[in-house]
Amino acid sequence: MAQIRLKNVSKRWNKFIGVDNFNLDIADQEFLVLLGPSGCGKTTTMRMIAGLEDITEGEIWIGDRMVNKLEPKDRDISMVFQSYGLYPNMTVYENIRFPLKVRKVPKEQHHERVMAASKMVELDDFLERRPAALSGGQRQRVALARAIVREPNAFLMDEPLSNLDAKLRVSTRAQIKNLHHTLKRTTVYVTHDQIEAMTLADRVVVMNKGVVQQVGTPMEIYDRPANTFVASFIGSPAMNLVSGSIENGVFSSDGIRIEGLPHRASGAVTLGFRAEDATLAEANGQIEAPIYTVELLGEATMLSMRVAGELVSIKVGKDYRAEIGELARIAIPASACHIFDQSTGARIEA
C-alpha cells in the first residue's frame, strides 16, 4: 500500500517560502498531478516526498511510515526526471538493470525483470544500443523502464515530457497513462502543462507561489475553478475573464451585457466564460465587437475580440469565415458564466 500523506508541510529558505502549509492525502494507486507555473512549488513538493529536499515543517507519510528522516533509497519510490539521467557508457539493457544491481536484487531475477520492463515501454529492439544512439523519446522510455524495473510502491515524475517534441509528447503521455493502468502504482506527476494534467490525472493540485489553489478532478477544476488564477491557467485557450459590475443578475461592462445570471452578488466582479460555451448570434448578442484575429484550428475556428480592455477568445465552427475588423455578435448563455470577486479573485457561488 502506498498512500502518501502530507501534513502541514512547508519549505522555507530564510524568508523565501517555497511551499506553504501543504496538506493532502494521495490515495493508494492514485495518479496525482501537481500543476502550476515555474516557481510555484510543485517540484519542491515532489522533492520533499522523495527525500531530496528537507522539509522545514510538517510530516510526510508513505504508507504507515513517517519518512521525514528516511533517505531517498529507503522510501520505496522510483523517480523519472526531465533530464533522462542515463549512463552514456552503458547499453539500454544495463541502464535498465542498474537499479537492481544497486539494490542487490538476486542476479537470477535481473534478466526477467529487465525484459518485462523493456516490453512495457517497447524497447526490446534497442537493448544493445547506448543512449547516444537513441532519440529523445526512446531515452525517456529507458528512464521509465529503469523506474519500472524496481517495482516500487510509488512513482514520482518531474516534467518527464518537457524535452520532447509535440508528437512525442502525445505518444509518451499515452504510454504513461497505460503504464499506470497496468502497474497500479501511486504516481505523483509534476508539470506546468495543463493538457498533461487534464489527460493524465485522477486529481489535480493547482499551485501558485507555494500555495495550493485548488484540488479536484480535472473536470471539477475545469468546470468550477476556485479562483481567477485557476480559471486562467486551465483550458486551451484559458477561460475568458472580463472585469465589470453585476446588479440584480445583470453583468455589464464596455461591449458586453449579460442578463439572467443566477447570482446574488453585486458590485465589481470578474466574469468568466469558456471559448467553447459562446456561439455566434445573428442579432442581439451579449458581445458586439470587431474581430481582432481569426485562427483556423482545423476542427474549429478561433475568433478573438477586444472586450472591456481584454482579449476574448470564441470558438466557432470550422467553416466560419470572416475578415479582421468585421463586427461579430456573440451569444453567451447565462448558465455558462462564472462570477469571481474582483478584489480577491475567489469564485462567487450562485
Results as ranks from 00 to 15, higher is better:
11 K>Q: 15
12 R>F: 14
14 N>S: 13
15 K>T: 12
15 K>M: 13
18 G>I: 12
20 D>H: 12
24 L>A: 09
25 D>K: 04
29 Q>C: 03
34 L>Q: 01
42 K>A: 09
43 T>V: 11
45 T>L: 01
48 M>N: 09
48 M>Y: 14
53 E>T: 15
54 D>I: 00
62 I>P: 01
62 I>Q: 06
63 G>S: 11
64 D>V: 13
65 R>G: 02
66 M>P: 00
69 K>R: 12
81 F>Q: 05
81 F>G: 06
86 L>W: 07
87 Y>K: 04
89 N>Q: 14
92 V>Q: 09
96 I>Y: 10
98 F>G: 00
99 P>G: 07
107 K>V: 13
109 Q>N: 15
109 Q>W: 07
110 H>W: 15
114 V>H: 03
119 K>Y: 12
122 E>C: 10
126 F>Q: 01
129 R>E: 13
134 L>I: 10
136 G>T: 12
138 Q>F: 07
138 Q>T: 09
139 R>Y: 11
146 R>F: 11
149 V>A: 11
150 R>W: 06
154 A>W: 06
155 F>L: 11
155 F>C: 04
156 L>H: 08
164 L>A: 11
167 K>A: 15
168 L>T: 08
173 R>P: 05
174 A>D: 06
176 I>H: 03
179 L>Y: 06
184 K>H: 13
184 K>R: 15
187 T>N: 04
194 Q>T: 08
195 I>F: 07
203 R>L: 11
205 V>Y: 02
215 V>W: 05
220 E>Q: 14
221 I>E: 00
222 Y>E: 02
223 D>K: 08
223 D>P: 02
226 A>Y: 09
230 V>E: 07
232 S>W: 07
233 F>A: 01
236 S>Y: 09
236 S>C: 00
237 P>D: 11
237 P>N: 10
239 M>L: 05
240 N>P: 01
245 S>M: 11
245 S>W: 08
249 G>S: 06
250 V>C: 11
251 F>N: 07
256 I>P: 03
261 L>D: 03
264 R>Q: 15
265 A>M: 03
273 F>N: 00
273 F>P: 02
274 R>P: 00
276 E>R: 01
282 E>C: 05
285 G>N: 04
286 Q>W: 02
289 A>N: 08
293 T>P: 02
296 L>Y: 14
299 E>A: 12
303 L>W: 11
303 L>M: 12
304 S>L: 00
305 M>Q: 13
311 L>G: 03
312 V>Q: 01
313 S>M: 02
313 S>D: 04
315 K>V: 03
316 V>N: 07
316 V>R: 08
322 A>E: 11
325 G>F: 13
327 L>F: 08
338 H>Q: 08
339 I>A: 02
343 S>R: 13
345 G>L: 10
